[in-house]
Design a protein around this nucleic acid. Structure first.
Lengths: 142, 142
DNA sequence: TTGCACATGTTATACCATTACACAATGACA
DNA sequence: TGTCATTGTGTAATGGTATAACATGTGCAA
């Protein structure tokens, strides 16, 4: 009844459904939120979501936000570059943006190397308030 | 029976117990591990741990490792500088080290500002293998 | 002494993630 | 064509992390 097993360049049905849910949401979702959204499509258990997420993370099409225990669809046009990515997370509206910066990536790599640490992956998450949620606005330039 | 309410520069009994447990462990502990260690001292519920941790985090005496859902005692001699701190986390032995670097901190601040993002706090966690856990060692320079 | 701020104790619950087992679909290959 | 390894799926049960809600206690100040 379900589609065929996964082949290269193709997502399985469950993976597509999870990715769609994340893409349409436009923001971070918890695994259980995704599950709730996909019950109409036959999802019944958390593991169906987590397994799809594991693959999507592996493909670099989804990112995990450690400080939120949530997931977002990758915003990069083509998810080719799996570099170090930083996220800004707005504490007011929950909006998440991706920042990719070679300077930070290189410096972190350098710091790790200096410490004799073999770096495999980095988590960089910035908490604060996004432009739209700034408390006072319309500041005139003096 | 318990000590007095918290005053400046003093930790309450529960806060001291939690900090001691973290300090003695020398590595990251989950809140529930701390709870188990402190049952002999009268701890019965997770909230007793989480409330103490909240304060210790506020005081900068403890750090939270988002990617581990765990906590560590701050290693800085005096916990005066609450700057951006990066952590290296060894995937093999679990060892955690703190790195403080102005270059990364400044660059992250700059990136946030450029994006109109009011930065409040940063999470930087590096995953990999520590010096002691490197797979092959004693590599000769060619 | 009344009220406030804060720390505490307890129960219950919500939220996040994985283990274990059974089954189905696919592709490689003899 | 049949066998086998691999991978994806479905389900139930469990384990791990964190907070809500409510009651009590203690020190301090008006």
């Amino acid at each position: 009844m379900n589609g065929p097993a996964q082949t290269e360049n193709h997502l399985t049905r469950n993976q597509s459904l999870v990715l769609d849910a994340l893409s349409k949401s436009g923001g971070p979702l918890s695994a259980y939120s995704i599950l709730d959204q996909l019950r109409d499509h036959g999802f019944r258990a958390p593991l169906q979501v987590y397994r799809a997420l594991d693959k999507l993370l592996e493909f670099g099409m989804v990112h995990r936000l450690e400080s939120l225990n949530a997931f977002v669809a990758c915003r990069h046009p083509s998810c080719d570059d799996h570099e170090t990515i930083a996220f800004t997370i707005c504490d007011r509206c929950g909006q998440v943006a991706e920042i990719s910066d070679d300077t930070v990536a290189a410096r972190l790599q350098s710091l790790a190397t200096d410490a004799g640490f073999a770096l495999k992956s980095s988590t960089v998450e910035l908490r604060g308030t996004c432009r739209k949620c700034q408390p006072s606005s319309c500041k005139m330039v003096q």
